[in-house]
Nucleic acid binder design. Structure first.
Length: 842
RNA sequence: GCCGAAGUGGCGGAAUAGGCAGACGCGCACGACUCAAAAUCGUGUUCCCUCGGGAAUGAGGGUUCGAUUCCCUCCUUCGGCACCA
């Protein structure tokens, strides 16, 4: 397993250096030397432009898998490239170290999560070192370390003090397997079930008092992506997740002695067509307005809806259901008495939990009205169509037209625009406001971030409850509020072990000093990862979450890379968090990460997801032992488009391994074929070299790692040909070898360093400057131009690279083959694309 | 249902200010070396063919001298959201 792949040993003379390819040997050697020399230490240096390259930190599950390599080593190559370009690069790494698997291990093995977690970190750190990345380990941070979560707690308190963290009773999602509440972002739709994003278990609803962050305060700002270069897909996903909709709130009075009911609508222009009202079964006024005759059926429906709620009631295709409450509302625009129903297609969690139903112009309302025989009144008449008739319509009409049946608004134009851009909507909103029966409102699907978790292995929420003084933060001098080491029971009881701990929850009220109770919930681990990029700035700092001088130099993050699965979770949380800290005065700027790129996923060879249970996981350690880390890095970059990912191909790595070995041989074989020709013309070689340099520079910039490697492969093939042609010894040859190693260095840092040394160059190649493209050298002398007749290539002519259109045309027409095709006739048309092609039309 | 991304040889993928489709690599075939195999090196490899050529970038249409690239319609795959009022 551990033997070198190939031995290119020739008959050895004792003075000759060993030229056998032994990556395991030189990789270990350089790793040690780089660490001893602190080659990748990143410190403030105002003489250079800075570049903060960040890749999402891993959870310390205990084993580095190929996906980690895929997400870390290409960005590492790019960070190295940036460094050679003259940037002062910081490329830190750490661990998202709180989380449930540690508790699972605690339950299973009766071992404290801290011990399990930090043992895993130790193990993964070792594995990561083999990857040959330029991580600055002196900046490492682990979120489960008290010196880290001290500041996670401190940030919570800052949010609390600034009114951005609050506690409320709410209907929340609960994962019965993980035994904790979840934020809405962490609940996913799977088939027709809502499941826990972490474990896939269907969630249930619970009414609980929980801590929230006021993320919705930033809804509008989070919809703006000004000045940041993020993938459109992520921006779209966040935009859809927040889902802003413009409309109006309208107040309806209710028959009898009841409070008003407010509805939210995006179509106030259709108010005159509201022929009934629907409340969510959970709406607080349902009981009050239900008449005695309807009480039984309403209760029955509510019970059934509540039960369905636990399973899943949001199946779109489901037949509409509902019951009449017996109550009536007054439509404020025309004083019509309209029946109030309850139905589970109206959600308490959106808008006001009540809608005005306009069956003529809303499909759901239409289906409901038809099923229960409710009145349908059209109020928008499309042009060029028979007048709509509520009795005979077969579906709702949602398009443009003129308002009808709407008294003073009759004839008003309604288009398909949303909100104020629609003249009908805009006019009605103004009128509602004036009449004081409604007002313009913007509604969001986005909800505040539920931060409480009923778990042990997280940062304890630093709050204390006293009967008299209610909730108060733990005083700063008592931070961190550390998790207990002893007397913790590892039983899957469904309650936080902290709650069951004999003494942990006892505290003194920060206000009166009297007996008080600690919060026993911990924070969502996404809170920890919302600010880890700040902790990297100064992980040792014990008096502040980060140094301001470090912040001013390094922030914001220039390049952020990671998986797209975090689009509406971490990537949204961290933007919110940054904006909140900005308003509190802790950080500057509007966005934490300027450029974002998402890598794809490495799939198993059968195109399925890799998983331990399926046993189809590719183990990078084995590959490193067999081929060396450089080959694994290069193959990772080469085998698929980084942004797409794809299935692993275990045979494919042989090609990359061959290229690495051939590169080694090219540099170390001192008996080149071909005579050293003093008359060797290096122009072709230099042209290839500088064309490649230009391409690779561009490809690194654009995260196109696969073509970086293929360009290097091509250039190596050229180098072998040049060697045959007697290039060895020429200045072009020497230049080519040096530049080749510069370009190789980010991809295969170990071998590049080893070969650089063997060229007799000064240590270290990783401190060399990225070579300059010699533009003149990239230019061709002559070019071959295809000549098309009626779109088909018939011949190719060779002309000077700078030949004029006339010259090219003449050369094309002079071709014998072309003349043969023309059969003596004049072409109807001759198109010359200078430097590219000639197209003849006959 | 809505929104988005992607469809190129046996496979991963190159090539888009519209200009020689298939770079590079895997696989495969043949050859050299070898007693033999592996490794290595070399040659070939989109398909069809009557060897002159013809067809081809998911399908169909359009714009153009010319389309993988731009426009329209459709199909497939993947991802996101999902009774959002």
């Amino acid at each position: 397993m551990n033997k070198p792949i190939v031995s290119v040993k020739k008959e050895e003379s004792p003075v000759e250096k060993d030229t056998s390819f032994n990556p395991q040997g030189f990789e270990a050697k350089w790793q040690k030397k780089w660490e001893a020399d602190k080659l990748y230490r990143s410190v403030i240096d105002h003489s250079k432009p800075k570049h903060y390259a960040l890749t999402m930190l891993p959870y310390p599950s205990g084993d580095l898998h190929i996906g980690h390599w895929f997400s870390m080593t290409p960005p590492d190559a790019r960070a190295r490239f940036k460094r050679m370009q003259g940037y002062n690069v910081m490329f830190p790494m750490g661990f998202d170290a709180f989380g449930l698997p540690a508790e699972g291990a605690a339950i299973k093995n009766n071992i404290h999560p801290r011990i399990w977690t930090f043992a895993n970190i130790e193990r993964m750190r070792k594995q990561m070192r083999s990857m040959g990345t330029m991580f600055d380990w002196e900046r490492e941070a682990a979120s489960a370390d008290p010196s880290y979560y001290k500041w996670t707690q401190w940030f919570f308190i800052q949010l609390f003090k600034n009114g951005l963290a609050y506690r409320k009773m709410a209907t929340v999602d609960w994962c019965p397997k993980d035994n904790t509440t979840l934020a809405r972002e962490q609940v996913k739709q799977k088939g027709d079930e809502q499941v826990c994003d972490r474990c896939g278990t269907p969630v249930i609803k619970k009414n609980l008092e929980q801590w929230f962050f006021k993320a919705t305060k930033y809804a509008d700002e989070l919809l703006r992506f000004d000045g940041i270069d993020w993938p459109q897909t992520v921006k779209t996903m966040q935009t859809n997740w927040i889902e802003r909709s413009e409309g109006a709130e309208v107040h309806f009075t209710v028959d009898g002695d009841h409070p008003q009911i407010t509805v939210f609508t995006t179509r106030p222009d259709t108010l005159w067509g509201a022929t009934f009202m629907v409340l969510s079964p959970e709406h607080p006024l349902v009981n009050a307005i239900t008449t005695p005759e309807q009480k039984n059926s309403v209760e029955e429906y509510k019970a059934q809806a509540a039960k369905q709620n636990e399973i899943q009631r949001s199946n779109v295709d489901k037949e509409k259901t509902g019951v009449f409450t017996g109550g009536y509302a007054i439509n404020p625009v025309n004083q019509k008495r309209i029946p109030i129903w309850i139905a589970d297609y109206v959600m308490m969690s959106y808008g006001t939990g009540a809608i005005m139903a306009v069956p003529a112009h809303d499909e759901r309302d239409f289906a409901f009205a038809r099923k229960f025989g409710l009145k349908i009144t059209p109020v928008i008449q499309p042009a060029n169509m028979e007048p709509l008739n509520g009795e005979t319509m077969t579906g709702a009409y949602g398009g443009a037209g003129l308002m009808i049946n709407s008294v003073l608004f009759n004839g008003t134009v309604v288009n398909t625009e949303k909100g104020r851009k629609n003249p009908g909507i805009s006019k009605v909103i103004d009128w509602l406001t004036e009449k004081n029966i409604g007002k313009e409102t913007v509604n969001y699907k986005y909800r505040d971030w539920l931060i409480s978790r009923q778990r042990f292995w997280g940062a304890p929420i630093p709050m204390i409850y006293c009967e008299e003084h209610k909730w108060n933060p733990v005083p700063d001098d008592q931070l961190p509020m550390v998790l207990p080491e002893d007397d913790v029971e590892w039983k899957p009881t469904g309650e936080s072990p902290l709650k069951l701990h004999p003494t942990w929850k006892d505290a003194a009220c920060p206000v009166c000093g009297g007996a008080a109770t600690r919060e026993t919930d911990t924070m969502d681990t996404f809170m920890c990862s919302s600010w880890y990029h700040l902790r990297y700035l100064s992980p040792q700092n014990n008096s502040a979450p980060f140094d301001e001088t470090e912040y001013n130099y390094w922030m914001p993050v220039d390049t952020y890379t990671g998986g797209i699965e975090h689009a509406t979770m971490h990537l949204l949380y961290t933007r919110f968090f940054h904006k909140a800290l900005r308003d509190i005065g802790i950080v500057k700027g509007n966005e934490p990460m300027m450029q974002l790129r998402n890598q794809g996923m490495v799939l198993a060879e059968d195109h399925s997801k890799m998983s331990k249970s399926k046993g189809n996981v590719v183990a990078p350690d084995v590959l490193v032992q067999k081929y060396g880390a450089d080959t694994v890095r290069a193959y990772i970059m080469f085998f698929a488009r980084w942004e797409l990912g794809g299935p692993w191909d275990s045979k494919g790595i042989e090609g990359t391994a061959r290229w690495i070995r051939r590169t080694w041989t090219l540099f170390t074989d001192s008996s080149p074929a071909g005579e050293p020709a003093s008359a060797y013309d290096g122009r072709d070689l230099r042209r290839h070299l500088h064309q490649t340099l230009k391409r690779i520079t561009n490809d690194f910039e654009n995260f196109q790692f696969n073509t970086v490697v293929s360009s290097l492969m091509e250039l190596m093939n050229e180098l072998y040909k040049a060697r045959e042609a007697g290039a060895v010894g020429s200045t072009a040859w020497k230049e080519a070898l040096e530049i080749y190693l510069h370009m190789l260095a980010p991809v295969a840092p170990y071998m590049a360093e080893e070969l650089w040394m063997r060229l007799g160059k000064p240590y270290s190649i990783h401190q060399q400057s990225w070579p300059q493209v010699d533009e003149a050298a990239t230019k061709e002398d002559t070019i071959e131009i295809p000549v098309q007749i009626n779109g088909k290539v018939r011949d190719k002519v060779v002309v000077a690279a700078d030949a004029s259109e006339d010259e090219i045309r003449a050369a094309a027409l002079a071709s014998e083959i072309i003349q043969k095709y023309l059969e003596g006739k004049e072409p109807k048309k001759v198109i010359v694309a200078k430097g590219r092609l000639v197209s003849l039309v006959v």
